[in-house]
Amino acid sequence: MTTIGVLGLQGAFREHIRSVEASGATGVVVKKKEQLDDIDGLIIPGGESTAIRRLIDKYDFLEPIREFGKQGKPIFGTCAGLILLASEIDGSYDVHLGLMDIKVRRNAFGRQRESFEADLDIDGVADQFTAVFIRAPYIEGVGEETKVLARYDGHIVAAQQDHYLACSFHPELTEDHRLVLHFVKMVEQSRKSLAM
């Protein structure tokens, strides 16, 4: 059975667990870095990126998560998770995990008042996907290796680079599990190739 961990320091981690389980994998909440050894893929959920980052530092998660990714194990970042995965953050020198070759802008669509939901097409994953954007970031630019999966109003809101997946919206807040299922498949694939 494929086991997917959801970083459970702060944010909407229980919704992700529900979504992972609905997609046929086992979901576990990851609160300690030692738990990374027991999972095949990791989701970094939405929440407050500054709060999550502080707790990542406090519990020495930064290097172990980077190492996890460098072993070829898939990581999926949603909203705050996308910010944490990025290699460049607009207006900030403080890069977090820096695993994905993307440049992000925080709170890019505005404050809560401007938060919205909209239907998107996610390339190769889902058409007419209802995406919930909450004080969301967007991706301003991607490297050559990164594939753009979705745009909203011209801005990149979902991307994939090898075994890294990121989106600005919250797939865990709806009953549509297609994007999480896509990630579960990525993890199953990587399990097979890492076992060889």
């Binding site: 320091l9 944010g11 939405g46 929440g47 909203c79 705050a80 939901e117 919930v132 909450i134 004080r135």
Partner: peptide
């Protein structure tokens, strides 16, 4: 088409605060 201020967007904002202070 996008919609602001929906129940999902407003409740979702609070979901993101969970486990926090």
């Amino acid at each position: 088409m996008s919609q602001t201020g929906t129940e999902r967007v407003k409740r979702g904002m609070a979901e993101m605060q969970k486990g926090g202070v």
